[in-house]
Simulated scan of single mutants.
Amino acid sequence: MKSSTRISFIAGFVVFLSLVSGVSFAAWSASSTQTATASAGAVALTTATASGASTISALGPHTYTASNQSLTKAITVRNTGTVEATVSTIAITRSGTLGGDQIAVKFWVGTNSSCAATTPVVSATLAGGTVSLSTLKMKLASTGSAILCTSTTFTGSLVSQAGKTTTATFAINSSAGTNWNATDVVAEAGRSFTQSIFQTKAPNAPTGTMCVNERSDYTVTVSWNAPAGFTTPNGGYNVYYDGSLIGNSTTTTASITGNATWADITIRAVASDGTMSVDSADIPVRPRGYEYRSGYYGIACN
């Protein structure tokens, strides 16, 4: 009887241990497997092609010649690890004279390098910061790749931003699970690009200025020759009266009215982006005549 009781007690004890061990092992197994793959360096990411060519740097150098002009490029994102990963964020840094808020940027998943527009789209600017790409649900199988289409658009004023430049750097990140992440291993130079705003070379000053008195005592007509190389389209010619802008002419003549004044009229050629030439030669004007009782009157070429 004593021997039988002892055996029954031991058997129950063994069953209890097996049950507890089974639950513990299952929890440990899930955690252990994830930790082992991540710690073995299986989460890895690159935006270079298989041949090592950078794809982010294709966004520059680029020069915008008009407002709301866009550039679209395909960024290849490759998972060089051994577990599935999800593209999670992109960190943007920049430097230069052109503010990052002047360049809008959009990201979407492409089916091929032509990057036809699709949804969803993540919108941001080059102003800097970390942008979440989670809504794109961009999953990369082990050793697989995908296309992250990227579009940049200059949204500012061509006149006020002319000649300014910015250099931006992207750092794309991927994640596996909740605790393991990988950042693009491409060197910074291969993840950077430069974009700038077109600046027209200032046109030459108008030449051959002339002045003709009109029949009215209060009107003269001034004319000039277009400067060499001043082609259309352009911004015409600004007309100045003693240094103050009084109008713009799309031709090479302008009628000036005035009364009892001495002044110099000058002309500036204006390029299509607002860039102006220096002043033309002065065109001096003076009063047309003098009356004893009322004094000087009218305007005349000097």
Rank of each mutant, 00 (worst) to 15 (best):
Y297E: 04
L71N: 09
S223N: 10
T261L: 11
T232W: 09
R288I: 00
G289F: 02
V186N: 12
V186F: 12
T266I: 06
V278P: 07
R286F: 11
A85K: 02
T119Q: 12
G177Y: 04
G163K: 00
S8T: 15
E291N: 14
L136G: 06
V212L: 10
H62T: 08
T152Y: 01
T49D: 12
V122A: 04
S151H: 03
I267K: 00
N204M: 12
A168W: 05
S51L: 13
A27Q: 15
S249C: 08
G235D: 05
P233G: 06
I299A: 01
W108G: 10
Q102V: 10
V285P: 03
S175R: 13
G96H: 10
S216P: 13
T97W: 09
P203E: 02
S244E: 14
F25C: 14
W262N: 14
T232Q: 14
K139V: 14
S67R: 03
L98S: 07
Q102G: 11
P206W: 02
A162I: 03
A91Q: 11
S145L: 05
K106T: 15
A124W: 03
N238R: 04
S70T: 10
P233E: 05
V278F: 09
L136K: 02
S132I: 03
G156Q: 07
G52A: 05
C149I: 03
V222S: 03
R78F: 06
G12S: 15
S88R: 04
A50Y: 09
W262P: 08
S21H: 11
T231G: 14
G96V: 13
A271T: 06
T178L: 11
Q195E: 15
R215M: 11
G229S: 06
A124V: 04
K106Y: 10
T111A: 15
V220Y: 06
Y237G: 08
V159Y: 13
V15K: 05
C301Q: 01
V186H: 05
S277Q: 01
T166C: 09
T165H: 07
N112Q: 01
D242L: 04
T275E: 07
T253P: 12
V131G: 00
A226L: 06
L126E: 11
N112H: 03
T169M: 05
A38M: 08
G99R: 04
C149Y: 03
I197W: 07
I265C: 07
G289M: 01
T125R: 01
T119I: 06
F193G: 07
A260C: 08
F154H: 07
N112S: 12
T63I: 07
S39V: 14
M276W: 02
